[in-house]
Structure formats: C-alpha cells, structure tokens
Design a protein around this nucleic acid. Structure first.
Lengths: 208, 208
DNA sequence: AATTCCAGAGAACAGTTGTTAACTGGATGA
DNA sequence: TCATCCAGTTAACAACTGTTCTCTGGAATT
C-alpha cells in the first residue's frame, strides 16, 4: 500500500520534518507563542519565505507537532493499560515505560506539557482532543477488566481521566529529573508508583 | 506595625501594581516568554524605560506575579484541608472553594497553570517552590488527622502532592469551563468531586 | 530654604519580526 | 521534447523589540 513519493514530494517532506525538528529544539527554552518563523527557518538553513510552503503560521506548526508527539502513542497506551500481571507489576511497568519514553524523547514530551495550558489556542485544543482520545481508549480497556463490573460509564471515564492526568504528572516529574542523579530519578519513579498504587486502591474499593 | 508610605513610595507601588495587572491581562492570550516590556508599559500608559524602575526583565515580573498569585493562598489551603465534617462534605466544600476562586480570579490562575511548565525557568522554579510549600503544609495538616496513624512521612508527602496536583487539575478544568453553560460547569464540579472521592478512598485503605 | 534623590519621560540605537511580490531552476506530466 | 508546476530564493517593507543615555520636576532630607 506504500507509494514511493516522487523526488519532489520526498524533498518537501524532508524540509517539513527539518522545520518541525528545529522548532522542537528551539521550544526547549521558550513557549510556542514566542517562537518566530524566521528563527525556525534560520535554524534549518532555509529562506524565511520557505516556511509558508509548509505551514500557515507557527500555530499551525504547533498543531502538527502535537500530532507527531501524541499521534503514535495510542497503541502504546492501550497495551500498557491492558497488560497482564498483578496490579503491582502493571504499575511498575507503566512507570518504567513512561521513564523510558521521557528519556528517549524529552523534547516532544516537554512540548506537550508546556503547551497543554500554553498561550496558543489551536494547539491547546489539539492537545485536549488527543488526551480525550487517550481517556476514551483507556476507558474501553478498563471496561474489559473484571474489576469494572458494576461501574457506570461515567465513573469509568472519570477514572481513565485520572489515569491520563497522572501519566502526564509523572512524565513531567521525570522531565524535571532528567539532568539529576540516577538516585533522584529512582526516587521520582518510586513516588509516582506509590501515587498510582493509591489510585488503584481507591479503584478497588470504589463500589464498597 | 503598619507604616504609612510617603507619597513617592505610594506612587511607585501604584505603578508597579498597574504593570502587574496589565501583564496579567495580556497574558490571557499569550505566554510569558512572548510578553514584551513595551507591550506592558504601553498598556499602562507609561514610558518603556519606566519598566526598569520596577523589574529587571519580564521574567522578573513573572516571578513577582507568582508571589502575588500563590503567596496569599497558604492560609486558605490550610483551612480547607483542616476543615471539619465528613469526608464527603469536605470534598464538596473544597471543590466549591476552587470553583469560587477560579471564577473570582481567573487571570492569576490561568497564569500559574500556563507558566508552571512554561518557557521561563525562574518562573517555573518560583511556582515549583510555592507548590512544594503547599504540599508541605498539607502534609502537616494531614498528619494531625486520626487517619494518618501508621503513615510514614514519605507516604504523607506523596499523598499531599497528589492532593495539590489534583487541585491544579480541578482549577484548570474550571478555567476551561469558565465561558461554558452553568450545567457544564456543574458537570465539571461533579467530576472533580468524584476524582477526589476516589483518592480519599485509596487513602482510607492505604494501610490494608 | 537649600540640597539631594529618584520615578518617569524622551530620543535615539541597532536588530529583529511577519508578510508581500517577483524570481529561478529542477522535477513532473503530456 | 516541451510546457507546466512549485519548493525554495531574493529583496524590500513598515513595524516592532530591548537597552542606553540624558534630562526633568516634584518629593524627601538636611
């Protein structure tokens, strides 16, 4: 089903990706609302006007970055929630997965944390929509679990939002600890695991 | 103990406050890292150079805004956690308190949510410090409660961080719903209350 | 009453920004 | 092979930025 792009389309996508990558680097030390289009093109080594061949504005670029950062995470989240094993094992695995992802891709994670409540409306909305999709997917996975018996749809969605928010809190904790010592990062992981444990306990006794 | 300021100092403080107020308005539609000093002085109606009499930079202004937004909230948080009544009553009261605060002071709340992970390091640090102080204070209040018997200091701090994070999540939910219908805002309040309820249940069974 | 102080004004600086228009040259399709 | 397309270039625009230095006039101090 894959169609080989012509030389022209291939080169265009390459430039587009270079713009997005350069933006992500520049956004490590500022917010999207202060990112200039010239700044990005300068970093790539291309004329300022070339920017318009790919994006209407930096806000438009931001929306594309949201897709890139979160779009590919859906299967990963699904399998994490579905994972077998005891509750304790699943928590440990989830925390390790988050730690690994943050270490491997710090820039996109930072971008999402920063722009979730940032100053650019279309980007905020794009992130909100993706996170809502995550919560929906987590809910359908949770619904399959035996523990979900007797739960209303509303309560399941409430819980899945709690889980998704907690993932983001954990990710941003790891982000802050990225430059810290391994001991500090271990401490963060243990804290995050305990918080998830408490939520799981609350879940287990919800219907009492 | 209050000392009446001279005319000069009084006028200076007035201008300083005007700069901060104007900044807060401008920051409703952008992030601090894109806020220009001229932009702020123009909004107040003073010369750009007057800015330097009060702040070294816009980052410096941001740190002052953090103090103003969070500094006065410590007693409020203390009493909320200490409040008497059943667990359910305390949750309802806490959610109402947050809803009321967001409605009364949306701009400072938005500023904190936005800059907590924003692009200006000193401001991020100022917010992190204030939130850590909140968590410490919540912990000492929780420690007084009978339910805290048998809890380690670490676990208490873990729980208080969970509560503080949940307050921020709730606040930003209300912020998003500010322009929505009363029904929608009521829905948000009920969701937030249920999430806090689940955490409280987890807390009750933590030592099982 | 004379002196010092200092918040704010004014003017000027070099450097930056987004956006427009007209162009070039290599890939594309007839 | 030849006409068309279009990603990227070049040049120019008015508008804006943070920062410096110099000045002013009223409050504060002596």
């Amino acid at each position: 089903m894959s169609h080989t792009l012509g030389i022209r389309q291939a080169q265009k996508q390459k430039t587009r990706q270079a713009l997005m990558d350069a933006a992500l680097v520049l956004l490590e030390e500022q917010s999207l609302s202060s990112l200039g289009l010239r700044e990005v093109t300068r970093a790539v080594g291309v004329a300022p006007t070339a920017f318009y061949r790919h994006f209407r504005s930096t806000a438009d670029l931001g929306v594309a970055l949201v897709e890139e950062a979160l779009g590919s995470l859906h299967p990963m989240i699904r399998t994490t929630v579905t994972a077998e094993g005891t509750s304790e094992e699943r928590i440990t695995r989830a925390v390790e997965l988050i730690a690994g992802h943050v270490t491997a891709y710090p820039a996109p994670v930072r971008f999402i944390a920063r722009e979730r409540h940032g100053g650019v409306q279309p980007v905020r909305e794009a992130i909100r929509d993706q996170l809502a999709r995550f919560a929906e997917e987590v809910r359908t996975e949770l619904a399959k679990d035996a523990e979900a018996e007797g739960w209303s749809d509303d309560d399941l969605l409430m819980l899945s939002h709690l889980y998704v928010d907690q993932m983001l809190v954990t990710a941003s904790l790891f982000l802050e600890a990225l430059e810290s010592s391994p001991e500090e990062r271990e401490r963060v992981g243990l804290l995050a695991a305990r918080q998830m444990r408490l939520i799981s306990i609350g879940r287990r006794h919800w219907l009492d």
